[in-house]
Amino acid sequence: MKLTFAIQGGDFIHAGHPSSEVKKVLKQLNIDNKIIKNVVIALYEAEVNVVAHAYSGTVNVEIDENKITILVTDEGPGIPDIDLAMKPGYSTASKSVQEMGFGAGMGLPNIKKNTDEMWLETEVGKGTKVKMLNYFS
């Protein structure tokens, strides 16, 4: 099964919509609750990173028998130093984003923690791709 969602940079109002839809689908498929929780955390964080840090993006979800693969691609500033960005607590979030309670620097570490595999590809000035994989058993 394949699902696609568009994300608009700066659009905090709709942040969480793709995660919520994917959660519903996984519930219908009777996937283990623990795994649904992990997928939802990781996807929400990847989504919000596009909203908070990039201009626009796409979520591509592929669900098959034994795994879910999610690719979040954005057009945006890219990440100059991936190791630094992955460090818990590191954030370049703007003041207004911080006031909403985002910008703790916990999003990428949350993705790492809640996926079986995670890949991050980025080009400064162009954009970022985050790929996440969770097995169902």
Binding site: F12, K37, V48, G101, F102, A104, M106, G107, N110, N114
Partner: peptide, 21 residues
Amino acid sequence: LLSDVMGNAQEAQVWITLQVH
């Protein structure tokens, strides 16, 4: 901090916060 809640809160807990959005 929203990512803290996202990562660490558990199902069926009450969430105490000053965020209103």
